[in-house]
Design a protein around this nucleic acid. Structure first.
Lengths: 271, 271
DNA sequence: TGTTCGATCTCGCGT
DNA sequence: ACGCGAGGTCGAACA
């Protein structure tokens, strides 16, 4: 392995090593005391302190402190790194356009610099994702409910693609929204958008004329003495099912309001 | 600065250095060829390759390849790092509980290891966030519309806290949802939840009974010849305003459906 | 702790 | 390029 490593280099030495590393397309790790400023989608300033600067050949730049999974400052891949010495101090600047963004790291001292050629080995195999949940359901549709028949995945609609479209035992259209983990109210809103879009698309099957949005399936959770028949009549034109390991209370409320169902299921079989 | 740095150490040397670094609470940067496996909320495997492993004293672990802003594998802060040599090879394992998660990095070769004491210097000043947008509006409410009067921020509701609650020139209650950047349909759904919650809370001021729900009150974008009066009558009991630099087409549709307004505004004044 | 929502989210896919 | 949704999202504020 070609690893370059310098300990307590001068600012100029660090500059040379950096330029060489950029030239070679190396992954760079740089310990030093620095200030950081960023301007672009937002703007930020970070006072002097010891940090780890990581520079990737794809243009990504990361400034890490001693805490957190997230870099305190960064620049996305596709940026261009440049290094210079200004007033005797090493300055690393990473810029990109659209949107215009600049990250500037000014060093008062460079403690350690390493660079290494790193390529490939990025192919991660991941299990337990939403896709696994989908696969699991397509293989065993009865996990959703007996008689459920998936018809299409990623089915397009005016509200975007729905995870699974199918029909239940009665032949009623069903929209299934998948989540790999416990979900909040937002997921219900997402499901609602798809159901609404599908209801519009399939035409209003309600007995009484147009409107389905207006009368729309709510009837109150607040003990409304609404005619159950009306709701029963038009609402089930399209059903909505949220498949997730669990839901929050508020999500459950919203599901109930909409007349949607929740099916508790995990991406991978338990144990 | 106390920086430890070893070039091409043996596996045992690397182990000693790592243990010392953990002891000192150092931030560690480690280049080497390794495989990575993870098991916890999900599970993953990564074949052999050269990578950069970063170990933080707060328990965070990051495995970086030559591409991407995101680590290919990681462990969140609060984990515990342990190093060992198994079958002559360095193995670094980071674990945490609740949820139970384990990241294991097995090295076939260590190319470079550096460690440095890094503390503090984490106080970032950031401008251009949603909070800045809120501040801007509270200082100049007319930016939302003439006569707008903010009454409360983070006002609680059954659907969660709304960004800004206020009244318009007519004294009509207004819910304002803030976004620092261009938004899609989800933001409209969020605003709708707050408006709905507030309408329920304030009591239905609509002339005719219950009904208003998310699905409800849309009146079709599909050229519905719905009675405009009905909607006009009950809908304005509470207004909804989405403040964001811009909105997508679909978001605009949904805003129109709901009778909500969009005000184009950025977190910080242009230029 | 659990829930909710913002984020310079990032990332991938599709139009 | 933009739009849209997933993510082992992370992180913070609050109940």
């Amino acid at each position: 392995m070609t690893v370059t490593s310098v300990h307590d280099p001068s600012h100029r030495e660090a500059l040379w090593e950096l330029e060489d590393a950029f030239e070679r397309g190396d992954l760079v790790s740089l310990f030093g005391r620095c200030t950081v400023s960023y301007e672009g989608r937002a703007a930020s300033d970070l006072g002097a302190g010891d940090r780890l600067l990581v520079l990737k050949p794809d243009g990504a730049a990361l400034v890490h402190t001693d805490e957190g999974r997230q870099p305190v400052n960064w620049q996305p891949p596709g940026s261009e790194h440049r290094a210079a010495v200004r007033e005797g101090r090493l300055r690393v600047r990473s810029t990109r356009s659209s949107p215009d963004e600049t990250l500037t790291v000014r060093f008062s001292g460079v403690h350690q610099l390493s660079a290494m050629a790193v390529t490939g080995g990025r192919d991660l195999t991941l299990h337990g994702s939403e896709e696994d949940l989908r696969t699991r359901i397509l293989e065993r549709p009865d996990l959703v409910e007996p008689g459920f028949e998936p018809r299409e995945t990623e089915r397009p609609s005016s509200a975007g693609p729905m995870d699974i479209f199918g029909v239940d035992a009665d032949g009623t259209p069903v929209v299934v929204e998948l989540k790999r983990r416990r979900v909040g109210p937002d997921a219900v809103g997402q499901l609602a958008r798809y159901v609404r879009a599908l209801r519009e698309e399939l035409g209003v099957e309600a007995s009484d004329g147009e409107t389905d949005d207006e009368t729309a399936s709510d009837g109150g959770d607040d003990g409304e003495t609404d005619d159950e028949e009306t709701t029963r009549d038009d609402s089930p034109a399209v059903r909505g099912i949220l498949v997730a390991p669990s839901v929050t209370d508020r999500a459950a409320e919203r599901l109930a309001d909409r007349g949607f169902d929740h099916v508790a299921l995990e991406p991978t079989p338990s144990e």
